[in-house]
Write a protein that binds this DNA or RNA. Structure first.
Lengths: 210, 210
DNA sequence: ATAATATATGACAAGGTGTCATAAGTCAAT
DNA sequence: ATTGACTTATGACACCTTGTCATATATTAT
């Protein structure tokens, strides 16, 4: 967390600094980012940076948390839009992320360099966490009648699976610079597989039985 | 790839250097590793390091590739052992990785700091790649009759899903320092969900219907 | 006006990386 | 054996980064 001094900063100075942070973390991933660049861009002396943040990581996760909070909000909006259908929700969720334009480079760097802490920040959306109550809230918003779980633990795992697959698809999209269309097609294919299950059930469906 | 000079090194000198690399990359993740530490431990001058490797990354991936080749081999042995049952194979595969003792710290650092390049190196096991022919070979070894796919592309996605979920479980095990038993229990639960599918199919099973 | 507190500043120590001129080996051919 | 061509070894060095700290400057309360 940034220090109080940061939050006491006059609006415009803070805004400039935040912009400089986003700029640097969009240029390169966290570990290649340089505080020198940030302070140069923000026009503040180096010492000041350390009045505001513990270190580079602190600043990075301040920005990331903000993005994630925003994404989190969008996610919940989508669930309502799709009447609790998790799969329709995820599909548009995926689309929103890969079509995001303003902060593509920031996201690209974050996804291609997913340390556990970064992953953990993102998957907070799908998990119970001190800062939120998402599992409970999700549980109430989801159309659970179509989902294959029989306990809260299973629901949790189900969501972990979905988020892992989703993240992997986003990473692949960025890494291989897939066109949005193609990325979406592949993601849909995986969602379909996830829904129907990875083992063949003859009595249920005809896919692949002929 | 290390430079030729590295491969021309006398056996024992190369072995010492490799040990020093493993030691440093076990101590801290790639981006915190220090070449100074490595050369100090190996007892070679700093300049020599650059005769052998392009840089830190080069050395890291040389070591990682070696580990992955070994894991890859174990994976194929398991498939044969389980007569092509992908799920039984994955279960023991998971177990082998989390129970590995000699190089826990190396793996821990690699999994908790999964850049795309690291992930990509690991998932080479489940993917077609210049250096291997795994999709084709897998295809022939797997008991595909129990798997729910109807094209090579679908099989590929099926494997991507399994590997994403597997990696996520390994990461969680390391991050939360779960006991092996607990990690395995959770992984099994997710495998079960994956097999039966995330949506409920009343006519097929009784889980969660009562 | 004064003291107490909060913020700003940039020089600096410590440590990291990659390079390069130079030294030292190795080997083949005369 | 000596020469020359080539490969390998070496550590000082330039350059860059980070985080700290003594000092200067605001700000606020009394």
């Amino acid at each position: 967390m940034p220090k109080v001094t940061f939050f006491n900063l006059p609006e415009d100075k803070r805004a400039t600094l935040i912009l400089s942070l986003k700029k640097e973390f969009s240029r390169v991933p966290l570990y290649d980012a340089s505080i020198s660049n940030i302070v140069k861009a923000a026009g503040i002396p180096r010492g000041s940076f350390y009045q505001y943040f513990e270190d580079k990581e602190d600043a990075f996760f301040f920005i990331l948390n903000d993005f994630v909070a925003c994404i989190n909000h969008q996610f919940f909006t989508l669930i309502k839009k799709y009447n609790g259908d998790l799969f329709d929700t995820m599909q548009e969720f995926f689309q929103i992320i890969i079509e995001e334009e303003e902060n593509v480079h920031f996201f690209r760097n974050a996804f291609l360099n997913m340390t556990y802490r970064i992953e953990s920040t993102f998957s907070r959306i799908f998990k119970e966490h001190e800062t939120n109550n998402n599992l409970k809230v999700l549980s109430s918003l989801l159309n659970t009648s179509i989902l294959n779980f029989s306990s809260e633990e299973e629901l949790n795992h189900l969501l972990q699976i979905i988020s892992a697959v989703t993240f992997r698809n986003i990473v692949e999209k960025f890494a291989k610079e897939l066109p949005n269309e193609e990325a979406l097609r592949r993601y849909r294919l995986e969602l379909t597989l996830l829904k129907s299950g990875l083992v063949r059930h003859l009595e249920r469906e005809s896919r692949g039985t002929s």
